[in-house]
Amino acid sequence: MRISAEQRQQNETRIRTAMDRLLRGQIPPGGKCDIKTLAREANVDRTAFYGTRPYAHLRAEFERRLQALHTAGDLPDPREAQIARLKNEVETFKQRIIRRDRTIAELTDLSAEALSRLAAQHDEINRLRRQADGAAAVRQLPTRATTVGPCS
């Protein structure tokens, strides 16, 4: 079915108005910032935006403006902005996990080394005690009884 030039102009006006709304972030419930939603909001058949159809130039304009917004870091679709934000958070969390895993590994190594040193020191103390017990030239000092109160 052919449409008149006036109907075509009205359709283009509705498409441009819907395009401006979508690109400002006024996304209808259940919609996205895409051609499908643009066609639905303008009440135009979606196939009219493809190939050599009458509104293909408007699809190209919409995609160009949308890409310019994305390049500028402005995401009109709140879900896309949320997805981008969540991807950044996931990456941040991954980096934190990597750093924490590295710290845990370092602390585990440090703990193992400290336990090893303590065990070696304990063995050395026991060896020196045995050696001191066996040596005749070393005299052991008497141990003092612990008293309660001031010393006289």
Results as ranks from 00 to 15, higher is better:
Thr13Gly: 13
Thr13His: 14
Thr13Tyr: 12
Arg14Gln: 14
Arg14Ile: 04
Thr17Tyr: 09
Thr17Met: 10
Ala18Ile: 04
Met19Tyr: 09
Met19Arg: 08
Met19Ile: 04
Met19Pro: 09
Arg21Ala: 05
Arg21Tyr: 08
Leu23Ile: 00
Leu23Phe: 01
Gly25Asn: 03
Gly25Trp: 05
Gln26Val: 11
Gln26Cys: 11
Ile27Gly: 11
Lys32Trp: 02
Lys32Arg: 09
Lys32Asp: 00
Lys32Thr: 01
Cys33Asn: 03
Ile35Lys: 01
Ile35His: 02
Lys36Arg: 14
Lys36Cys: 08
Ala39His: 00
Glu41Cys: 13
Glu41Gly: 08
Ala42Gln: 00
Asn43Thr: 06
Asp45Met: 13
Arg46Met: 12
Arg46Tyr: 14
Arg46Glu: 15
Ala48Tyr: 11
Ala48Pro: 04
Ala48Cys: 15
Phe49Ala: 07
Phe49Glu: 02
Thr52Arg: 12
Arg53Gly: 14
Arg53Phe: 12
Arg53Lys: 13
Pro54Ser: 09
His57Gln: 11
Leu58Gly: 02
Arg59Ala: 13
Arg59Glu: 15
Arg59Tyr: 05
Ala60Asp: 09
Ala60Trp: 03
Glu63Gly: 04
Arg64Asp: 13
Arg65Tyr: 02
Leu66Pro: 04
Gln67His: 09
Ala68Thr: 08
His70Arg: 09
Ala72Pro: 08
Ala72Asp: 01
Ala72Tyr: 05
Gly73Glu: 03
Asp74Cys: 07
Asp74Pro: 01
Asp74Thr: 06
Leu75Thr: 06
Pro76Tyr: 07
Glu80Gly: 04
Glu80Arg: 08
Ala81Leu: 09
Gln82Pro: 00
Gln82Glu: 05
Ile83Cys: 05
Arg85Lys: 13
Arg85Val: 15
Leu86Pro: 02
Lys87Ser: 15
Glu89Cys: 11
Val90Ser: 02
Thr92His: 12
Gln95Lys: 00
Arg96Leu: 15
Arg96Lys: 07
Ile97Asn: 08
Ile97Tyr: 00
Arg99Asn: 14
Arg100Trp: 09
Asp101Cys: 11
Arg102Gly: 15
Arg102Met: 10
Arg102Val: 02
Glu106Pro: 05
Glu106Tyr: 10
Glu106Met: 12
Glu106Phe: 06
Leu107His: 01
Thr108Gly: 10
Asp109Asn: 11
Leu110Gly: 06
Ser111Asn: 12
Ser111His: 10
Ala112Asp: 01
Glu113Arg: 10
Ala114Pro: 01
Ala114Val: 13
Leu115Asp: 03
Ser116Val: 08
Ala119Thr: 04
Ala119Phe: 01
Asp123Gln: 14
Ile125Ala: 13
Ile125Glu: 08
Asn126Met: 11
Arg127Asn: 03
Leu128Lys: 12
Gln131Asp: 09
Gln131Lys: 14
Gln131Leu: 03
Asp133Ile: 13
Asp133Pro: 01
Val138Trp: 06
Val138Cys: 00
Leu141Trp: 06
Pro142Ser: 11
Pro142Arg: 05
Arg144Lys: 04
Ala145Thr: 13
Thr147Trp: 03
Thr147Asn: 05
Val148Trp: 10
Gly149Asp: 04
Gly149Tyr: 01
Pro150Ser: 14
Pro150Arg: 06
Pro150Val: 04
Cys151Asp: 12
